[in-house]
Simulated assay, not measured.
Amino acid sequence: MKQIRSFALALAIAISAAPAFAADTLRFCTGGEGGFYESLGQAIGTSITKKTGGELEILNTGGSVENAELLKDGDCDIGILQADVVSTASLPADIKVVDAHTEVVYWLHPKGGAVDDFGDMEQDAVAAKYAFAAVTGSGALTTVRNWIKTDKDYEGARVIEFDDWYGAAEAVAQGYVTKAGVRIEIAGMLYIGRPGKISGDITEDFGSQIVIGEVNDSSFANSKDVNGNPLYVQCVVDSASTSGLKTSSTLSPDTYCLKAQVVYNNAYHASLPAKEQRATRRAIDKGINSVVKAVR
């Protein structure tokens, strides 16, 4: 409710501001329809366009990875992306990146499973027996690939991709998946989202079969985001952040958190006259900052 009231306040302030000029349509890449990225994008975009006089177009997407592709292709001007997607994607050179809210990296594994800590996959014997599950095009897939690249001890780990979270969760819940007639043991999967907001595709049908484990590996703590700040920050999954899932540890599981970031392509205002460029940059700065402060 607090975040909803903050959005409402930000929108009300934005609407009261009279635009001094008219800019082009601002294309904002968000996430799934009805999701938090869409709500955040709507609030930020409205705040900006009420100052610039331009139109706002909200683009619903598959999330961070698709948003990065659309930004690269010039099909959107601003988007919300997971911080490690920003740092690993080849985005346009002239961008502005602002931290928004915090997201949790959840290690989800089958109840009673052998790999209750992501870090166990460093062991060659464990990596030889088990694979990670991941959803194609998800931010979590970016994270697991980035971690494998960061720490060479994970080089032997395999990643099995699924089309959606339901399919991945089903494989994690049963502890294996069969591909081309071959049984592959699944250790678990990463899921990244706001605290306590694990997808219903996971919790509703598999809540009694999947538990939250830990990520104990200091190798990722030195990674930096595009602004030079820590990319992954050690944190815990407290009781309010489990979405009703059980944990495999008696204490709050250790893990990492990272930021969602608002990425703006400065090319949006590059063709405007100098005075309007300055006014647009101010509108962008104020529009982003006035909303993200409310959700940090």
Rank of each mutant, 00 (worst) to 15 (best):
D124Q: 12
P110S: 09
L141F: 04
L81K: 09
D77G: 10
H101R: 04
C76S: 13
V115P: 06
I95H: 02
K111S: 14
D75E: 14
L81F: 11
E103W: 00
Y106D: 12
R145E: 15
D120L: 14
D151E: 13
K129R: 14
E122V: 09
V115E: 09
T143R: 07
D120T: 03
D84Q: 12
V104W: 04
D75T: 07
A127S: 15
G79L: 01
V86S: 11
R145H: 08
K96W: 05
A114D: 13
E122K: 15
T136C: 00
V105L: 15
N146K: 13
I80G: 14
M121V: 07
Q82T: 12
L91V: 09
L141C: 05
T150F: 04
V85P: 02
I78E: 03
L108W: 13
D84C: 08
G112E: 11
T88Y: 03
I148F: 06
L91S: 09
F132A: 12
D117H: 09
Y154A: 00
E103Q: 12
K149I: 06
A128D: 14
V144T: 15
F118N: 07
K129T: 14
D120I: 00
T142P: 01
A131M: 09
D153C: 05
K152F: 00
D116T: 13
E122W: 01
A140C: 07
Y106K: 11
K149C: 01
A127P: 09
P110N: 10
Y130A: 04
D117Y: 00
T142G: 02
V144W: 04
A127T: 10
V105N: 06
D84F: 09
F132K: 01
V135I: 11
E103A: 05
A114G: 00
G137D: 03
D75F: 09
H109P: 04
A93W: 03
E103H: 00
L141D: 12
K96E: 10
T102G: 02
S138N: 04
S87H: 03
S87L: 01
M121K: 07
G79M: 08
I148H: 05
T143Q: 02
I95V: 15
A128S: 14
H109K: 02
G137A: 08
D77R: 03
S138C: 04
A89F: 13
I80R: 02
K149D: 14
V86M: 09
P92S: 07
L91E: 09
S138Y: 08
H101F: 13
V98R: 05
Q82Y: 12
K111M: 03
P110Y: 11
T143D: 12
G137K: 07
T88K: 10
A100L: 01
L141R: 12
C76A: 15
G139R: 06
K152M: 05
G137V: 06
V86R: 12
Y106I: 11
K96M: 08
L141A: 10
A125Q: 06
T136K: 13
V115W: 07
V135E: 01
G112C: 10
A100E: 04
D77E: 12
V104T: 14
S138Q: 07
